[in-house]
Design a protein around this nucleic acid. Sequence first.
RNA 1: GCGAGGGUAUCUAAGCCAGGCCAAAAGAGCCGGACUUAAGAUCCGGUCACGAAGGUGUUCAUGGGUUCGAAUCCCAUCCCUCGCACCA
Length: 926
Amino acid sequence: MSGPDMRQIERETLLLWEHAFEPDPTLGEKFYLNVAYPYPSGAMHVGHGRTYIAPDVIARFWRMRGRTVLYPMAFHVTGAPVIGISKRISRGDQKAVSLYRDLYKVPPDVLAAFTDPLAIVRHFSDEYQRVMSECGISIDWRRRFTTVDPQYSRFIEWQWKHLREEGHVVKGAHPVRYCTQCDNPVGDHDLLEGEKAEILKFTLVMFRWNDALIPTATLRPETIYGVTNLWVNPDVTYVRVKVDGVIWIVSRQAAQKFTLQDHSVEILGELAGSSLIDQVVSHPLCGEIPILPARFVDPDMASGIVMSVPAHAPFDYIALRDLQSLGEYTGITPVPLITVPGYGTLPARDAVERAGIKNQDDPRMETLTQEVYSAEFGSGRLYEKYGGAPVKVARDAVAALMIRQYGSVPMYEFDTRSVICRCGGQVFVKILHDQWFLQYSDPAWKAQVSSLLEQMCLVPPEVRAEFERTVDWLKDWACTRKVGLGTRLPWDPAWLIEPLSDSTVYMAYYTIAHHLKSISPDLLTPEVFDYIFLGKETSSLPEREKLDAMRKEFLFWYPYDFRFSAKDLISNHLTFQLFHHVAIFPGALLPRGMVVFGMGLLNGAKMSSSKGNVFLLEDALHEFGADTVRMFLVGSAEPWQDFDWRNELVASTRRQIERFISTVEESHNATGIPDDLDGWLASRLQGHIARMTEALEHFQTRQALQEAFFGIESDLKWYRKRLPAGSDGSRYLWELCSVWVRLLAPVIPFTCEYLWKKLGNTDLVSFAPWPVPDPAAVDRKLELAEDLLSRTVEDIESIVKIIQMAPSAITIYTAPEWKRRVFVAVAAAENKGTVIKEIMKEEEMRKRGREVTDTVRQCTMLIHRLPPQIISQLIEEIPDEQAIFRKASGFLEKEFGVTVTVRDTGESMHAKAALALPFKPALVIE
RNA sequence: GCGAGGGUAUCUAAGCCAGGCCAAAAGAGCCGGACUUAAGAUCCGGUCACGAAGGUGUUCAUGGGUUCGAAUCCCAUCCCUCGCACCA
């Protein structure tokens, strides 16, 4: 049986759904959820699939529960990536072309148009919509927009006007990674090499040498008191340059760097490093010192000349020792200035000697330097004669002093060498001016976000800590760019608003996006948005009727209930959008919750388009069908867990759906009259409904599926096992299937629409009422009886298996009345220690002596092994086991193919019979 | 390095917060059987070890500790994932 043609069903169902999920405000309750919109620069893979399918399951669930559900979608087009992509494609870059042509399967004529960046996003946003629809995602596409639509830009301008008025936007200078070849700042993804390089702020300590200054860059300005010499690389050519009118001696590379860091630089001439050796320089804080040669000095690091503190810097110490071992400069002794626990007077010497370093070429020098550096920074103190301050404090104080009095200036430099742009050019640190910042560092703003977070529902709860940390840690964010697509800053149009800063309150835009399409962008002044979103009246508002409708619609949907996104966005986007919301919207309209997703793996490895390790969502749809893809993606792990796509696992998901289809279809054959067994099935079903509902209320899609799919399936398995031979079950199965199809509709909606119709319904299951557990259908006694039966069957099976003998007769001995009393007494006892005493108060029990104490012990063990729920039920009433087993004897005989007798323990002298306990009958198999 | 989360049987994964319901749910895979001309699907059984009576033994990253009792609590170590900013 291959089942119905799912692809055909999908096509037909999609027609039924056209315009079905386009909600307008109602009188009822709403549920508004949204997902971070995609940047459509490539094809969707199965990882994207889950990002949008999991919220769809939630959307469909609440829709069936009667809420008016809004699930909108748009496309984030702002930023620079597509510009780079289109450049690479027009340049004929093989890697880029092959990615788009071969992996994303873009047709040649479309690819040719990709020389226009907008063509890329247009193509892929259409693809996204098409594929999302094919997945059955119930999006209201009327509200679709892109972030470069003129209406959206007007909206962003409104948003930024408010941010500025609230004082959240400030101007400043900012050091950035900068490629001189591209003449642009570069981000991580623009780098060929050195992604992890951090920008460090050095202090240039200015030593005087004749008419010139020699700047040495240091991260430890406080060590100036211990400087014994400078190091210059004798093999390097240095330059004499005029910097801001003063003569400096630096490496050639450094001279170029200064031009990018707010200095005017004019090269006057060259001089060999060797010519500087043995020259004497001076600084007011350390006096006169010589220049010594050292090969470790890198001309491409900061100024290309360093100051030497052999007492505290292992590199300096070992370089000096190397020289002195050749008999040179033996007059120089290290000058200590910091005390640090765990080290002697000369920490650098201690570290070098402990590690047994031979010379300055030893590879361990880096870690050694780090070790001394951290120790001194963490617990070091300057000598009393230098003020006695902790290093932590002295560092900034001395730097400030030098800048104020001794001509020092800061210099920015990377902590690692070789930072290379994708274009192949070297990357430098440049100070950008007139940069605009969002002042996330503002404690008052942070406090507002923190208190909003406290009220918000975060799923899973573990992410709360990370959000709180992020709010604490956020610093000012450079929010404008010179290149890319986007909206211009209204008051400074030379700048574009950066992509992470123009995507923070668009959830409000969705509520009216479809109405805005019919309004000229020119009419969308800040006053118009003030009215729609804040209810602020202004005279002569245009299109008043439309605005009123929008105001009403906005207030219907807002605030949003849940925002969904992957966990990598916690530390930026998800937190940013909270900052922006509190800045603009009143308390009653602030976000209510967020759901954070895990990441996707493909066959155990990270999914990555550039490495080709992706499985395209569309391919998955074709190969497995939409419902299979959906069920796998939301069923293999909870949304916040990472999931792993493996084709062989997905294939078995498809079989599960096929099994479900045939079960429901075959329920037509069930024509029997419902009896107790159906009562049991119905009672169990109520539990499944309740638990699945609760799971979905908590976004636990996997748990929900376990409950509703496998839970019901395994009940049916037992049900069929229990049916008399030849029976297909009762009419109750129709009812069960009606519930079952609705429970699974959020997860596998195509299949369920199909089956819903087969069950004789004419409406859409997508809008059918969600099943509600019926307390009247719950029958604990029936459930307990079946439980006893199935446990007993398991026991018999396990015995039969072990004894490896074909049984000829089975006798079930139920426990005698007095044991039931003991059982209840033990189960109900507060104090298990004194329970025997209590029981022995009865004359009848005392007569039985040891038998009773043994039973107490056995009962205690049994009680520990049974679920508490069963125990509490047993305390209330021990079922009539005789009746249960007698009633099921036909079933038992069918199961084991032998006669099954049921007896009370008292009727037998058999040794085993004495083992009977309540809910654990003794079994004799012969 | 810093911040957050996590490591459970062949795999995915529940259990952990509230310690005894735990040899540890569920699914998958694998093995065996039934059905079938055969394959697939389906159904039945098995899947840590031992056991001719429903049990016993050893397991929940590693090593310690608390407790009558630990996958669950505490400490240390190792490993994995995400983030560390001008980038979507």
